[in-house]
Structure formats: structure tokens, C-alpha cells
Amino acid sequence: MTALQGCLLISALLFAIGFAGAVTRRHAILVLIGIELMLNAANLNFIAFWRFGPHPEALTGFMFVLFSMALAGAEAAVGLALVIAIYRHKKTSNLDEVKELKG
């Protein structure tokens, strides 16, 4: 197993963990945490391909990770604001109880 394969396996496992959490947990914040983990798994893939790939001097994978981090920050801010708004409205953050998209 090469180093690249090791990195890819780690990130695949991280993705699977994040995915499993996002689809099985009830709490809205935990779903967001799962999504963050999946994004991080993707970032790890980009860095691994940048490090072991053919043209590292182009910095493409590197830049992709920087931009996706900024997007993850925006996503977390909006997602958590939504969770807080839903909580304020329905007094719950349990996803099984928030089924209809109307107030």
C-alpha cells in the first residue's frame, strides 16, 4: 500500500463516519457536524492528490482546499443560524419533528 492509498483510505473512512452520523442522528447540529466531517474527508483527498500527484507546483489541490474551507465556514454559519431559527420557532432541534417546511 502506497502513502497515497493510505491517505485515500483514511479519508474514505472519515467520509463514511461523517455520512453515517449525518443520516442516523436525530439532532440537527449533529447532522451539520457530519457534513463538516465529510467536507474534511474531501479536503484530505485533495491534499493527498496534490502531495503525491504529478504537478504539485500548480497548487490546484491546495487552493481547492483553501476555498472549500471558506465555503465550509459559510455553510456552518448559515446552517447553525437555521438551526437556531428553527429552534426558536418550534422549540425543538430534533429532525424527526421538523418535517414540514412551513411555520
Binding site: 467520509f15 443520516v23 442516523t24 442522528r25
Partner: peptide, 20 residues
């Protein structure tokens, strides 16, 4: 703390990992 269909979720994520 788990949703109603949690077993399906675990199975799907295990499959995703196996495939990857």
C-alpha cells in the same frame, strides 16, 4: 438519539466505504 431508519443509514455508509 437515532433516527427511525438508522440501520439503513449504517448499511449504506458501510457500503460506501467498501466501494471506495
Amino acid at each position: 438519539v437515532l433516527t427511525s431508519g438508522w440501520m439503513a443509514g449504517i448499511a449504506i455508509s458501510a457500503m460506501v466505504f467498501t466501494l471506495l
